[in-house]
């Protein structure tokens, strides 16, 4: 295992199974025990060139809870980035003021490029449609937490699998760990070939489906994602499929005892509010786990654990 100190967290593909398990185990320790001064005198630069309140709050809260401090781009629109400054220039300047950088940018590969021009470690909070590794780690953490294993699990990824970057990285990671994957989506929003290409190389088992009903009793995890109206050229097409992927209590009558529903949030109508009160709802706990995963990553790359 390569040491984590000064390492960049750019893509799930940069990590071995052993390294991923080390991150998840470290996150577990942070969930159990608070560490209010661990990152004292360390500064996180929070650079969200593209707005994402949830991910930014999670990174910043994680840093605060470990006693570190934050400098951030308050409003991407008024910053130099919108005046045409390149990613590399922005990073080179901010690099001098901090010890670690968390960033989100709409260009794919921007975090990789940032890591090449920065002396401090970069945590990728999303680079366009490409990667969002901290989301993948918190998803894996939540699955492991509820199922006590990853290998051999039956996991359904549901909704917009074509544009949903979270499902791409998660499918890859679960494929690495030997989970059985079920891709449930309208044909026009199925998993893109570059993702299945990777899964074939990993020898991961997967199948595609258009409806969830029949496979519900098999599943351990149901990972729902939002289907966005804007993704459909034809609004009629959206009307046809939108209700097929809504989880209601009725859909949950035959599920396994250990069955859990995850969602990267925000939800629109994919999960009916009645489901929130069932023992299967785990999406809020999952979002909360993002904090511990990000605490673990900050501490790891700063060499404090």
């Amino acid at each position: 295992m390569k040491p984590f100190k000064n390492r960049n967290i750019i893509s799930i593909k940069d990590f071995t199974k052993e390294e991923i398990m080390h991150i998840l185990n470290t996150a577990k320790k942070f969930k159990i025990k608070v560490n209010p001064i661990l990152l004292k005198h360390k500064i996180l630069a929070s650079l969200f060139f593209e707005p994402s309140t949830r991910t930014r709050f999670s990174f910043e809260s994680a840093m605060e809870r470990l006693g570190g401090s934050i400098i951030s781009l308050a409003e991407a629109k008024s910053s130099s980035a919108s005046k045409g400054e390149s990613v590399s220039d922005s990073i080179k300047i901010v690099d001098k003021y901090c010890d670690v950088i968390a960033m989100r940018h709409s260009l794919e590969g921007s975090a990789r490029l940032a890591s090449e021009v920065s002396n401090n470690p970069i945590l990728n909070g999303g680079d366009g449609a490409n990667q969002h590794p901290t989301q993948t780690f918190l998803d894996l953490f939540s699955i492991l937490e509820t199922q006590k294993k990853l290998k051999g699990l039956n996991v359904a990824l549901v909704g917009d699998l074509k544009y949903g970057r979270t499902t791409h990285s998660l499918a890859y990671a679960l494929g690495m760990f030997g989970a059985r994957l079920f891709f449930i989506a309208p044909p026009s929003l199925q998993m893109p070939s570059y993702v299945t290409h990777d899964l074939k190389k990993l020898k991961a088992k997967y199948s595609t489906h258009t409806e969830p009903e029949r496979i519900m009793p098999k599943l351990d995890i149901f990972y729902a994602t939002r289907i966005q109206k804007e993704r459909f050229g034809d609004p009629m097409e959206y009307e046809k499929v939108k209700d097929a992927y809504i989880i209601t209590n009725k859909l949950l009558t035959k599920v396994k005892k250990n069955f859990k529903i995850l969602h990267p949030l925000p939800r629109v109508n994919e999960i009916n509010y009645e489901v929130d009160n069932t023992p299967y709802a785990y999406y809020f706990e999952q979002a909360n786990n993002g904090l511990f995963v990000r605490e673990a990553l900050l501490a790891l790359v700063l060499g404090k654990v």
Partner: peptide, 13 residues
């Protein structure tokens, strides 16, 4: 070939 790739936008890439 990906127009959204940072290498098509950043002068140092």
């Amino acid at each position: 070939p990906n127009p959204a790739c940072v290498t098509n936008h950043d002068p140092v890439a």
